[in-house]
Design a protein around this nucleic acid. Structure first.
Lengths: 345, 345
DNA sequence: TAGTGGTGTGAAAGCGCTGTCAATAACACT
DNA sequence: AGTGTTATTGACAGCGCTTTCACACCACTA
C-alpha cells in the first residue's frame, strides 16, 4: 500500500472539474480547448464547474501531452535599457492577441549567460526563439539548430544566420552617424561607447572606418560597464580632458548622449554651437530633449513585429518557411538640433 | 497497430541519453539532478552522453513529475518604463543564482489584463507570485489565494494584503513631495500625472491632501495615456497655458518631470529660478540631469530584493512563513537642484 | 561462513493533460 | 422497423520525467 505522493486537496485538476460537471476528463478538456464543438448545455455545465472550483489548467501537463507549448522565448541582453522597450512592446502586441506566451530571458550582455539562457529557454520547449544579436556561442548555436524550431536573430544582420535573420548593419549605421558629423565639417570627432554591447563595438568600427576615410584620428572613450546616463556624463568629462578641442561626439547610444548633453549643460558648453552630439537608437526622450538629439533611428518595433509575424506564420500557418530568410530593415539618420556645422573657429 | 504520435527523431530525451550511456533512465535522471551521489565513472558516462546528444532536459516533464517548477511569476504593469528596471534587476540578482526562473508578464496597467496575466502565470504552476501593486480584481485574488503559494504584493502598502506585502504609501510620498514645494513657499503648485497608473492616482491624492492643508487650490493636468517624456512636455505646456502663474510643479514620475524640464529649457523658463520641478521615483537619469531633479526616491531594488529573499526562505528553507507579513520600506525626499524657494516676485 | 550496513542502480507507477479512435445517441430517411 | 449519417461523448495510451522502493553488490565484522 503506497501512499499517494501528493496529499489530496491541492489545486483542482481537470478530473475534479469533470467530476463536478459529471462528464469525463476528455470531454472537459475538449470543452476548454474547443468550446464551439461541444453542445451548449455541456459547455455551460463545464464552465460552471471551472468557475466553481477556480480551476486553472495546468499548462505544464497540457504542453507535455500536446507537445505544443504556445510559447515563444525571447532572449535580450538587458531589460534595463530603453532599447528593448519598443522591441518587447512589439512582441507583446503581436503575440498576446494570438495567445502566444512570451518567455523573456536576459543575458546581461554576457555570451556565457546567453548560452545558459538559451538552454533554459529550450528546456521550456518554446515553439520559436527570438534572439537579440548574432553572437551566440558555438554550443548555443548547436542547441538552437537541433531544437528544430524557428530561430530568429534580430537587431543585426548576420553573415551566417542560424535560421531567420532580421536586422540592420550597425557598422554601416555607425559609419553613417560619424559621417554625418564629418560632413558638417567636424574633424575632432570623439566616440563615447560602452563596449560590453557587441553591437556598440560594431558601431565603433563604423565610426573608425569613417574616420579613416576622412583622414582623421579616431578618439574613443570607452568603459566596460553597462551604459547609462551617468556613464555618458563620465565618458564625456574624460574625453574633454584628454581632447579639449573636440567639436563633436558620436555616442554609442542615446543614453550616453543624453548623459553627455547634461554634462555639457552643466559645464556651460552650448550644444550644438560649441559641440555637436550625435546619439544612436532614437529612444523616446531623444526627440523631446533640448536640444533635440540627432540620432540614428533603428526600427526596433518593426524588427520585432516582423519577427513575430514570421513566427506566427510558420507556427500557425501552413508550416512553410517563407523564402526570405534575411531582412535588412535599415536605419535612418535623424538630424535634429544637437548637431550643427562646425564653427570656423 | 497505432502509429506513434510523434515521428521519432525529435529532440533527444532522457531515454536517449540513458541508452547511449548504457544505464537506465532513472539513473540518468539522478545523475543530472544529484551529480554528487552517483559514482564518478557513471557521472562521466552520462555527462558525455548529454554533450554528445546536445540534450536539454524537458523542463515541462520534469516540473510535471516533481510538482516543482523552480519558477516564480512576476507581474508588472509595464516593461517599457524605467521604474521596473531596478525592480527586475533585483529579482534577477536574487533568483538567478538560486536557479529560480523568473516568468515576467506585463499587464499594461489594465486590471483586466492583470487578471489574465495572473491566470496565465498560475497555469505555469509557479512556486510564488510577485505582483506590482495591490489592486487585483476579486477573481484574481481568489485564484491567487487558492494557489496556496506565497504571494507577494509589492510597490504599495495594502490595507488587506493577500499574503505578503512589501511597499510604501504612495499617498504619503505624494504628500511629502507636494509638501516640499509648499514649504519652499510655492502656492501655485501644479501636478502633472498619467492616471492610468493607480499608484499615480494615490500620489495625486497625497498632493491634494497637502494642497488642502496649505489652503491652496490644486491644479492638475492629467492625460489618460501611458506616461512618457513627450507627455510630460505636453502636460506642462497645457498647464502653463491654463495657469501661467504656476511657480512649481510636482510630476507623477520622473519621466514626466524630465519631459517638463526639457519643455522649460525650450521655452527659456529657468529651472529652478522661474519654476521648481519635483519628480517621483528617482530614476537613473534624475541625478545627472541638469539641473538635477529633486524627486522622491522609492526603494524599488530593495523591495524586490526583500520579496525575493522572503520567497526563497519559504520555498527553499524550512517552509515556514516569516511572522512579519507586511513591510513598509518607506521613501526619501531627495532635494537636488530643480526645486528652490519661490522668488518673492 | 553467515550476517550487517552501506552504496549504487533499476522497475514500476504516475504527475495532469491531450490525441486518437471507438462508442453511443440522435435524427432523418427509405 | 431498419439503415445510414451526423453530432456528441468516452476509454485508452502516452507525453518525458521523477519518486519510491526494491534489489544487487561490495566490504567489513562476528
Amino acid at each position: 500500500m503506497r501512499t499517494p505522493r501528493k496529499p489530496p486537496g491541492g489545486r483542482p485538476t481537470l478530473n475534479d472539474v469533470a467530476a463536478l460537471a459529471s462528464v469525463s476528463a476528455v470531454t472537459a478538456s475538449r470543452t476548454l480547448r474547443h468550446p464551439d464543438i461541444v453542445s451548449p448545455r455541456l459547455r455551460a455545465r463545464v464552465e460552471a464547474a471551472v468557475r466553481e472550483l477556480a480551476y486553472v489548467p495546468n499548462q505544464l501537463a497540457s504542453a507535455l501531452a500536446s507537445s505544443r507549448t504556445g510559447r515563444v522565448a525571447v532572449i535580450v541582453p538587458s531589460l534595463t535599457n530603453g532599447v528593448f522597450d519598443d522591441y518587447l512592446r512589439a512582441l507583446h502586441d503581436a503575440f498576446v492577441p494570438a495567445s502566444v506566451e512570451i518567455l523573456v530571458l536576459s543575458s546581461n550582455y554576457l555570451p556565457g549567460r546567453e548560452e545558459k539562457a538559451i538552454a533554459t529557454a529550450l528546456g521550456q520547449y518554446p515553439e520559436a526563439v527570438i534572439l537579440a544579436g548574432i553572437d551566440q556561442t558555438r554550443h548555443a548555436r548547436r542547441l538552437l539548430r537541433e531544437a528544430a524550431i524557428p530561430i530568429v536573430q534580430t537587431m543585426e544582420i548576420a553573415e551566417t544566420p542560424i535560421d531567420i535573420n532580421i536586422g540592420l548593419s550597425h557598422a554601416d549605421a555607425g559609419y553613417a552617424a560619424a559621417r554625418h558629423l564629418f560632413e558638417l565639417g567636424h574633424r575632432k570627432v570623439g566616440h563615447l561607447m560602452a563596449p560590453r554591447d557587441s553591437r556598440a563595438r560594431k558601431r565603433a568600427e563604423g565610426y573608425a572606418r569613417a574616420a579613416r576615410e576622412f583622414g582623421v584620428e579616431p578618439i574613443v572613450a570607452a568603459v566596460d560597464e553597462p551604459s547609462s546616463f551617468a556613464i555618458g556624463a563620465k565618458l564625456f568629462a574624460e574625453m574633454m580632458q584628454r581632447q579639449p578641442e573636440t567639436t563633436a561626439i558620436f555616442c554609442g547610444n542615446d543614453n550616453l548622449a543624453l548623459g553627455a548633453l547634461f554634462e555639457c549643460q552643466r559645464r556651460g558648453v552650448d550644444v550644438p554651437r560649441d559641440l555637436s552630439i550625435m546619439g544612436y537608437n532614437d529612444l523616446e526622450f531623444s526627440a523631446c530633449a533640448f536640444p533635440a538629439l540627432s540620432t540614428i533611428a533603428t526600427p526596433r518595433y518593426e524588427m520585432a513585429r516582423r519577427a513575430a509575424e514570421i513566427i506566427l506564420e510558420i507556427v500557425r500557418g501552413s508550416g512553410e518557411r517563407p523564402k526570405t530568410t534575411q531582412i535588412d530593415v535599415g536605419f535612418r539618420v535623424v538630424v535634429r538640433e544637437s548637431t550643427a556645422k562646425v564653427r570656423s573657429a
